[in-house]
Design a protein around this nucleic acid. Structure first.
Lengths: 148, 148
DNA sequence: TTTTATGCAAACATTTTGCAGTCAC
DNA sequence: GTGACTGCAAAATGTTTGCATAAAA
């Protein structure tokens, strides 16, 4: 087991305690959905999550459970959902610092980036409109270098 | 007729000529869908567009036609679609300068804004990743001053 | 035991498509 | 007249819900 996977184990342990403390119940399904999201660090749709849990760990998870679980995780504030514009929601863990996305309109690759200046400026813009910023999404559409 | 509506007439005339030149055909439906989007300057769903065309001009437009027409307009590059996160796409004319949105997570109000610094910085970020920027969407979520 | 979670299937909402008829050019 | 457009209804897609069963605490 490498460090990264070890990192997941302690993350999972903490999270499960948190779930218990709030009076919810843990389950294998939650564990593996979380693990897929943690290890893939990708932006996965509900369908992709269900498929990965099955193919990587041979655990069947109903699609309804995936939807209920990602909704639960969103309420727990540990994942974000992302809409690339194709009508399918994708989910990712929000462990890391906030980041934004560039989506290639040709190959649909997703590139993550962070930019301090943009982050700061967003805060200023929100303030100037008396708007209490809670979250934001910024997506740049275009062609990646491979598709250029 | 006020200036703004007069502005629409010349815009519509130009657009219809453009459509003809490209070998597509004009129709009352296209005209009125465009008019609703132009005059409302709002972010309307397909359903809302169909409803407005009917209530404002007493013209029936099938929902399928609305979807086909907004797709056509998107390909003509005169409208943008916007996803507020509720699974319903909304559309707006992109005549004006690019602008971004703040969405109130409580009352769902949409506030438009522009920020030069953010616009410029996006271009720089794209360049630094060898990404050819074509468009972008930035949405800030939070509470507006009324809901604060 | 009690309560929450799961899986299935049915329901739902939005969007897309096939087709026959209509309209623009 | 030809080809694109429309409206309808059916289909497809993505997501949610009801209910009986299973599992967690």
């Amino acid at each position: 087991m490498d460090n990264y996977e070890a990192g997941f184990d302690s993350f999972l342990k903490n999270f499960k305690e948190h779930v218990s403390r709030l009076g919810f119940k843990n389950s294998i399904q939650k564990d593996y959905i979380l693990k897929i999201l943690y290890l893939s660090k990708e932006h996965l749709s509900a369908e992709q999550i269900a498929h990965s849990v099955k193919s990587d760990y041979n655990i069947e998870v109903g699609i309804a459970t995936v939807y209920r679980t990602v909704k639960f995780f969103e309420e727990m504030n540990i994942i974000n959902s992302l809409d690339v514009g194709d009508g399918v929601k994708r989910y990712e863990l929000n462990l890391s610092l906030h980041h934004d996305h560039m989506v290639c309109t040709n190959c649909h690759k997703i590139i993550e980036f962070t930019d301090e200046l943009i982050e700061e400026q967003q805060i200023k813009v929100a303030q100037s409109h008396n708007f209490e910023l809670k979250d934001h999404v910024m997506t740049i559409y275009g062609l990646c270098e491979d598709c250029y």
